[in-house]
Write a protein that binds this DNA or RNA. Structure first.
Lengths: 150, 150
DNA sequence: CTTGACCCTGGACCGTGGTCCAACCTGCAA
DNA sequence: TTGCAGGTTGGACCACGGTCCAGGGTCAAG
């Protein structure tokens, strides 16, 4: 407990020194006190914050979302509803990804099943599938959100 | 049929001109013939290649993998086994992601369920979860592969 | 002849989450 | 005193898959 320099905090949290400075630059950690020589000084709260961030990342939150969640934890006017909103959005996002991804897995699995090990690649149903005609592209003038599973 | 300039190919494939030049630089499309003025000239095979790439991307393949798959389709010595290998790896990858992601969704769903809409944020189980102590970090000296769902 | 649409090149820039580097300063031990 | 581990800064660089831009050339229509 007490105060650490950046290397100690980094070691305790399992991140790099640069990561801590990066978080500071991006508003995930407050600018810490400094020694006379300019060394950053941290306390247990900072370790807690780093751990919070890591937990949030493991749940798929971006750093920006982690920042928002941290703001809510220290706010004394925020209600749980704000946290719930972020979380519900994350759940929807996860479900969308799950659906797309399991669809992809199903297609790949079916194709792989029919693939004869020997035999020239040209007969492989996977390549046949990929080479199959697509409906010709029509504009829709939509931008954003490229293909892939996300 | 016949030959297009880059803008026509781009429109037909539903990608940007820059994307086509980017693919060329990265070996996904062969360097095309040029007019006397230096304009790129494409044919139907190029459209097929672009469509192949888009299909591959939709199945979650990276451009590098798409490039490998394209190489296999034109190779006359390659066997289906090589394609299968890439595909099986992709399936395993998809399954890993699915597992991690559905685990995340489950946790978020449980937390969201217990979250009281009104009430100060500090009582929200989501924030409580994120603020919970982690087992202190011990080195393991492993690098690579940060947290998150991937 | 000019206009506009299209094409060329090389290079910068985007988001995300860092990582690495040079050049310098500090604090402690031998 | 010197060495070395640690700290400081600003800025460059990584993957990935593009996107955009400036400064020029080309080509057909009016």
């Amino acid at each position: 407990m007490g105060t650490f320099k950046i290397g100690q905090l980094a070691a305790a949290a399992g991140v790099g020194r640069d990561t801590i400075r990066y978080y500071e630059r991006n508003g995930l950690l407050p600018a810490p006190d400094r020694t006379a020589a300019g060394y950053r000084l941290y306390g247990d709260v900072d370790l807690d914050r780093l751990n919070f961030i890591r937990s949030a990342q493991e749940l798929g939150f971006t750093l920006e979302q982690a920042r928002q969640l941290l703001t809510l934890t220290v706010s004394d006017t925020a209600t749980a509803a704000a946290v719930l909103e972020i979380t519900l959005a994350k759940i929807k996002e996860a479900e969308g990804r799950l659906e797309r991804l399991s669809h992809i897995r199903d297609i790949l699995r079916d194709l792989a099943q029919d693939c004869p090990g020997e035999a020239p690649a040209s007969e492989c149903p996977i390549l046949v599938y990929l080479a199959a005609k697509r409906r010709p592209y029509q504009d829709k003038a939509m931008k954003k959100e490229p293909p892939g599973e996300r």
